[in-house]
């Protein structure tokens, strides 16, 4: 959809609640180079959320939405879990259907949009928790990669089932004592980034959301690569501060400690050689553009 379509009819403009007027006026639809830095300066594509105070997932959501390169033509697919409590407040079309089937829904959706709009670049982005991505939905997650479906999968990894109250998940660390893991989890954290690489993802990134710049970069890479090459995967550590017994303000520290040397979330990226070249080209072009933009305009 063009930015022009996200407009309120003039005759009813004044009766619209202010946040909608604000969205039309100040949201960054259609803005070249939109990113996390727009947060605080412009209307975000996310309203109130009903997550716990201080939840890193909330900030991850904001970074992701601020960094979508093409929100006016992006449709997101979620799954059951904490993320689905945020999605109603997101200002891009998004789908919740069942628990774990998000990559199957996205496969059908991406293909339908391609059939209906062959000349428009519509981005489909999956965003689901680790239970949905790795446990109940692993089959459909991986099969969409095998098939080479051209969309990005984001996993908000909080290493447990948060919405149902902190049960063991496949991405939980070994030994962690949780509901349904009364003597501690008995097997290792599933290595989904490596699985993704082997299953046909052209770009894979695993990181925390402590550094917005890095989240933005990974997301943009993933979406651009998905358009050109095929499936991409991003795993973001968004600790459930409630279930791991932390305070509201301790989320950032938790993420930082997990990404230090030897931690579970040391930043890692996998990509094919073709993707490496493609991203290098893209970066060069962006730099050149910025350079031109910086040049003073002469009359």
């Amino acid at each position: 959809m063009s930015k022009e379509k996200i407009q309120i009819c003039e005759d009813l403009y004044d009766i619209m609640p202010p946040e909608y007027q604000d969205m039309v006026e100040n949201a960054t639809y259609g803005k070249e180079g939109r990113g996390w830095k727009d947060i605080g300066e412009s209307k975000e594509l996310i309203e109130q959320h009903s997550l716990c105070a201080g939840c890193p997932e909330a900030i991850a959501f904001r970074y992701v939405l601020a960094s979508l390169p093409n929100p006016e033509n992006t449709v997101m697919v979620g799954s059951t879990g904490c993320t689905s409590l945020v999605f109603p407040h997101v200002a891009v079309h998004n789908i919740h259907s069942l628990f774990g089937n998000q990559n199957a829904v996205a496969s059908g959706l991406a293909r339908a949009l391609k059939v209906r709009f062959p000349d428009v670049q519509k981005d489909v982005v999956v965003l689901a928790g680790d239970g949905a991505t790795v446990d109940i939905g692993l089959d459909m997650t991986m099969q969409s990669w095998f098939r080479g479906e051209k969309f990005t999968t984001i996993c908000f990894d909080n290493e447990l089932y948060a919405n149902t109250g902190g049960q063991e998940s496949g991405l939980m660390q070994k030994g962690f004592v949780a509901k349904m893991a009364p003597v501690g989890k008995l097997f290792d954290k599933v290595r989904l980034p490596e699985i993704a690489r082997e299953a046909g993802c052209h770009y894979v990134a695993c990181l925390t959301v402590s550094k917005p710049q890095r989240v933005e970069k990974a997301l943009r890479n993933a979406i651009f690569v998905a358009r050109e090459f095929g499936p991409t995967y991003i795993q973001l550590y968004t600790p459930c501060i409630l279930e791991i017994g932390k305070q509201s303000m301790e989320g950032l520290d938790e993420m930082k400690s997990a990404e230090t040397v030897g931690g579970r979330f040391v930043f890692k990226e996998y990509m094919t050689d073709a993707v490496k070249d493609f991203l290098a080209d893209l970066e060069a072009k962006e730099k050149a553009q910025k350079k031109t933009a910086k040049k003073p305009v002469t009359a």
């Binding site: 789908i95 069942l98 059908g108 339908a112 459909m140």
Partner: peptide
Amino acid sequence: GDYFRGESEFAVMSQCAGAAFG
């Protein structure tokens, strides 16, 4: 416009849902 083999009926019906949502 498109046709493919899904991985199970559960997935197929979800894929159909995705297409219909779109």
